[in-house]
């Protein structure tokens, strides 16, 4: 478990968060993520197929990073479901960021349903290589 990016526990419902929509509870989906760290910062990649830029919300509230996306389907009017692995239209996940991360400088990109979030470390806290001089 990452100490610098900790997932916020959400009420489990189909393994995801629960969102209140018009008085009715809609089970959100837990987007699968990869999270890795290098000297410069932390990168988070999340699968959110069907989410367009306009329907994606990446937010930092205090020390919490919130990812939320809505899937847009083009369905014919007289459509009838035959089979469904995906039974929700909302992705939602949140993580608590630790203090050495620079939350004011987060960059997010979305391509083909994959969200990439780059969270840099504060410059003064990045590991610095100490040069060893030969005597």
């Amino acid at each position: 478990m990452a100490r610098n990016v900790t997932e916020v526990a959400a009420p489990e419902s189909q393994g995801g968060a629960v969102q209140q929509t018009r008085g009715r509870t809609e089970a959100g989906m837990r987007a699968p993520v990869d999270i890795y760290e290098d000297g410069e910062g932390i990168t988070l990649e999340a699968d959110m197929p069907g989410v367009s830029r306009e329907r994606l919300d990446v937010r930092v509230d205090g020390d919490t990073l919130l990812l939320e996306g809505n899937v847009q389907f083009e369905l014919p009017k007289d459509a009838e479901a035959m089979y469904a692995d995906v039974r929700s239209t909302v992705y939602r996940r949140s993580f608590v960021l630790s203090r050495e991360l620079e939350t004011s400088n987060i960059q997010a990109t979305l391509k083909d349903g994959v969200l990439t979030v780059r969270i840099p470390k504060r410059a003064e806290l990045r590991p610095r290589r100490v040069e060893v001089r030969t005597a």
């Binding site: 990016v5 699968p32 993520v33 990869d34 999270i35 760290e37 290098d38």
Partner: peptide
């Protein structure tokens, strides 16, 4: 890099 999560297929 150091990986904390690898959930994606």
């Amino acid at each position: 890099a150091t990986y904390y999560r690898q959930e994606r297929f």
